[in-house]
Computed example of a mutant assay.
Amino acid sequence: MVWLLMGLATLVVAVAMALEVRGALDREREFRAAPACASAPVQASGCRWEQEFTVREADLNRGQRNGPPEAELLLPSGKPWDVTFRQTDPVVSELAPGEKVVGLIWHGQVVEVRDADGRRQQTSDGPVGWPEDRLGGALACFSFGLPALLGGVWPLVARGDRRHAKAAVVVRWHGVCLAAVALFTLWAQGANGWPLWAIPAIWGPFALLGLASMTAFVIAALRGDMDDDGLPAPEPDPTAPASGHS
């Protein structure tokens, strides 16, 4: 029952993330096509404006669970501007109080921070990278959710059948492996800056191999090849000469 509930919940998340991919792509395209502002915008605008900031403090929040890296930036007027980041590298982990940075403002939000060495990092409000995150997350959730759902329903339908129960276990744990592959693919794509299509291109062949492996093990389980019953003891050969001392 636990696997069944986890599968249902994860599939709901997978659908929600998949529905966000198109919107994230549109927002990223809008950002890349946005022109530079002619002057500092006085209100949220679709143009891009580079604003100098001074770092007041930066906190990676490594000791806090689910706490994103964050930094407090100061405008030349002294007004603070708090920004958060999705990850620590490559900029926020190197920020020090008093350091000068440039923030890219779009639609009233700091979406990117550039340090003195020219390194850039998207903030939590940045549109770049969100389509890949949504797609990779959807694949990971779907890879886990569907096998977990099937593996959770199967023992309930074939209650009391040991072979079907083992086949269900095979399905569930293959789902865990496929989800891990999807997460690794997302990490590799982000670390190397590969395009969006690289995620399904890498994950797809591994998914096919995983499905083939799952099918083979399920068939083996249903045939009884995975039964852990002890092998029967060999019967003595009646034609063999008896051993012993006379």
Rank of each mutant, 00 (worst) to 15 (best):
M1I: 13
L5F: 15
T10L: 15
V15D: 03
R22V: 11
A24I: 07
A24M: 08
A24D: 15
L25H: 11
R27E: 14
R29A: 15
A33T: 03
P35E: 02
C37I: 03
S39D: 05
S39P: 00
Q43D: 08
S45L: 06
R48Y: 01
W49A: 05
E50Y: 10
E50M: 12
Q51A: 15
E52F: 08
F53W: 09
R56T: 00
R56S: 07
D59N: 13
R62K: 14
R65S: 14
E72K: 08
E72W: 10
T84D: 10
T84K: 02
R86F: 12
V92W: 01
A96P: 01
P97I: 01
E99Y: 04
V102T: 14
H107A: 08
G108V: 03
V111T: 06
E112P: 07
R114P: 04
G118K: 05
G118P: 00
R119Y: 03
S124A: 14
V128L: 14
R134K: 15
G137L: 06
L139V: 11
S143E: 07
L146S: 09
L150T: 06
G151K: 03
G151E: 01
V153L: 15
V153Q: 02
P155L: 08
A158T: 05
G160C: 00
H164K: 03
R172V: 13
R172F: 07
L178Q: 12
L178K: 00
L178N: 12
A179G: 13
A179V: 08
A179D: 06
V181F: 13
L186P: 05
W187F: 13
Q189C: 07
I199T: 12
I199W: 01
P200T: 01
W203A: 14
L209A: 14
L211D: 00
A212N: 03
A212W: 09
T215I: 03
F217Y: 12
A220Y: 08
A221L: 05
D225T: 02
M226S: 09
D228N: 04
G230Q: 00
L231Y: 10
P232Y: 05
P234Q: 00
P238H: 00
P238F: 02
T239Y: 09
S243Q: 13
